[in-house]
Amino acid sequence: MKKTACKQKEKKNRLLTLLLLLLAVVCIFGPLYMTVVIALKSPQEMSHVLALPRHIQWSNFAKAWDMTDYPRKFANTLFITLVNLIFTVFTNAMASYAIARNRKKSRFFNFLYYYFISAMFIPFNVLMLPLVNEANKFHIDNVLGITFLYIVFGMPMNTFLYTGYIKSIPEALDEAAVIDGATPFQTFVRIMFPVLKPMTATVAILSVMWTWNDFLMPLVLLSDKKQQTLQLAQYIFQGQFNTQYNLAFASYLLVLLPVQVFYVLCQKWIISGVVTGAVKQ
């Protein structure tokens, strides 16, 4: 009886697993299939969205490239992403190291930790209008200004990730460095920062994907077309009376491709960094 019950339970589990897998395939690959198919169609074929194109229109990508001024917008987006990545990784790791090692000793650092973490619960929509007003006053409504804001707004989440990981690192490493005559800065650069590689990879990848894919902050801050990002350039396909869906979806693929390749190549570091940071020793 027990064997029969176990076999029935295994069959149910397999069936449920297959259903969930099918649902995942439909939800993930369904929109991707529609995006690729629409991007390769002519305007006359848009009445049948799911049907394959009769004649593949590779020219859609060339037209989308020219209409969005892709090289300039790509350069703006890449600049914001790379500068944000460099400053985020080093400054946030250093601040998190100071907070994690001094929380138990100092009320100030303990307050600082909760101050940063509390910012995670404030939606950007609440800060959006005051931020636009202040950005205009201080003239940071440009590429350099929005890069600085990305570094600031990413700090709460990155501090949370880094401090959780640093807790799992024995303080004996710090003490040994101090005995050898290292200053706190030298201890961080030569000892701690190399040890933080798994979490640094996670923070770096998540920061890159967030910055590259963000639409709302550039929308409210970047009014100059020459300084707009790739995400804002997608507005050009939407007119007052019609939308060029085939060109728009071709442009979406051009925007999606770089970050998708980046994620596929680096996803193992995301998983390893999150798992390692979640385990306390």
Score class of each variant (00 low, 15 high):
16 L>E: 06
241 F>N: 05
46 M>H: 02
148 F>H: 11
257 L>Q: 05
258 P>R: 02
85 L>K: 04
164 G>W: 00
270 I>N: 01
139 H>I: 08
164 G>A: 02
186 Q>S: 13
125 N>C: 10
124 F>M: 03
1 M>P: 13
201 A>N: 15
113 Y>F: 09
83 V>E: 05
152 V>I: 12
116 F>V: 03
9 K>A: 14
78 L>T: 14
130 P>A: 04
224 D>K: 15
80 I>D: 03
174 D>Y: 01
80 I>V: 09
191 I>D: 07
65 W>V: 09
128 M>H: 01
54 R>L: 10
251 S>F: 02
68 T>P: 10
239 G>Y: 00
59 S>G: 12
195 V>W: 00
38 I>T: 13
244 Q>S: 12
70 Y>W: 00
190 R>Q: 11
109 F>S: 06
245 Y>A: 03
35 T>I: 05
27 C>W: 06
139 H>W: 00
210 W>A: 11
218 P>V: 08
135 A>K: 04
50 L>Y: 11
256 L>P: 14
248 A>H: 11
137 K>L: 04
111 F>Q: 02
242 N>M: 13
13 N>F: 04
180 D>I: 09
263 Y>D: 03
196 L>C: 13
46 M>E: 03
104 K>M: 13
278 A>P: 13
218 P>C: 10
263 Y>V: 03
81 T>V: 01
146 I>A: 03
69 D>P: 15
44 Q>T: 12
13 N>T: 13
59 S>C: 08
163 T>R: 02
265 L>Q: 08
275 V>W: 00
196 L>T: 10
96 S>N: 11
177 A>L: 02
184 P>K: 02
261 V>S: 04
232 L>G: 10
230 L>C: 09
123 P>F: 00
164 G>T: 04
161 L>C: 13
27 C>E: 10
39 A>P: 12
142 N>G: 10
17 T>Y: 04
244 Q>I: 08
203 V>D: 08
253 L>Q: 03
212 W>L: 03
38 I>R: 09
17 T>I: 13
214 D>M: 01
186 Q>K: 14
